[in-house]
Nucleic acid binder design. Structure first.
Lengths: 205, 205
DNA sequence: GCGCTCACTGTCACTAAGTGTCATATGGGG
DNA sequence: CCCCATATGACACTTAGTGACAGTGAGCGC
């Protein structure tokens, strides 16, 4: 996580500007030149970093999901998902950079219904998170990463997380609701339990 | 299905050409002009039909998933998923146009790993299929379409179907394997049962 | 039949997304 | 200090995608 290739963190930095601009001006009204100017790099470099304009937000969307996957990697086999998240979610949401990224992501998710290009970026980000989750599930279920049941389980959990994220984001941004960490945690636990085909939610060792 | 707006079927016709060209020449080597020429329409109309080049294949990818969702709509409440698919899958795969679309879709799925643009089109198509599935699940579970558990169930099933489709497509095209209708049906039943959070797989009435 | 509307398409000029290529940093190892 | 590798900028270029308007043809009242 911390020693990731510096190209990745450069991409993430640009991605934050793109996410902000898409939120402020809308996707169509934001050009590659705008993103480059905001990030203080040349337009050419924007297209070296990202294969398309919508892909510019993928790192910001991905990083929240990925950080959550990284958290799950620390999930001890002796604990249930409820126990683990109850004690670790509070600490999880203190990192400042992470909170800012989460807000940016939430704002993107809230406008998904009118921005198809952003939805495709979101789905791509979820797909990468899913790939990451396969490792976590395989480890916890003591199975291989090529096991179909493992991949199915990771896909279901990712789909469940995606729905929770979309739902909460829309509620917060579009309906002005406020939600507590506990509510979010409860929602996530429910989603993971619903999506888990394999018996990984309770203590496995 | 049959009396869909004629704009939709025009889009589908163009989409078939796009899918063929992407398969034959690759995504990057196929231009909007190529698609227009193959479909016998002006380039301008291509961009009226589709918001982007990758979106050109969405109808072909969507139609197989959607037809399957339509099949599930006929699933009687007195039958289990195993019973229903065992007797209806054979008839399902006889429609000629459908078989051709399925082959086109399978070819797209087989090259997903090297064509990120096509993956995003595929994920978008799956998302639309998911929306359609929500109705089926809601009906069978006797719940509303806004029920979170219903949407969760539809998302899980869609994710499972997506994995099955990707897996089988890659096996058939990349590894030259041959699979029978029975094997595919068994795979799908397994996936649906795995993804179904709600008790909809067995007779509900 | 006649003319009207209206949704759809083609043409063409245009903007913006995205690439190829080369020159110039930047920065670590001998 | 120089060499080599990798990252970026500059700029010309191609292709994706839009705006504006004119033409076509099917439906419909008369």
């Amino acid at each position: 996580m911390t020693d990731e290739p510096r190209l990745e963190s450069a991409r993430l930095a640009v991605s934050r500007h793109a996410a902000r601009l898409f939120w402020e001006k809308g996707f169509d009204a934001t050009s590659g030149d705008d993103i480059a100017a905001a990030a203080g790099i040349s337009t050419r470099t924007v297209w070296r970093y990202f294969r398309s304009k919508e892909a510019c937000v993928e790192p910001v969307l991905k990083v929240s999901e990925l950080r959550f996957a990284a958290l799950l990697k620390q999930w001890p086999k002796t604990e249930s998902i409820d126990q683990f998240l109850a004690r670790s979610m509070a600490a999880f949401v203190t990192d400042d950079a992470m909170v800012r990224d989460s807000i940016a992501a939430v704002r993107i998710l809230a406008v998904l219904h009118r921005e198809p290009a952003l939805r495709s970026a979101w789905l791509m980000a979820c797909h990468e998170a899913e790939v990451e989750l396969v490792g976590v599930v395989a480890d916890r279920a003591s199975r291989g990463v090529d096991d179909f049941a493992v991949r199915l389980c990771a896909a279901s959990i990712t789909a469940a997380m995606r729905l929770v994220d979309e739902e909460i984001s829309s509620a917060v941004i579009n309906d002005g609701l406020r939600v507590s960490t506990e509510e979010v945690t409860a929602r996530i636990v429910l989603a993971i339990r619903a999506g888990a085909i394999l018996p990984i939610c309770d203590a496995v060792a």
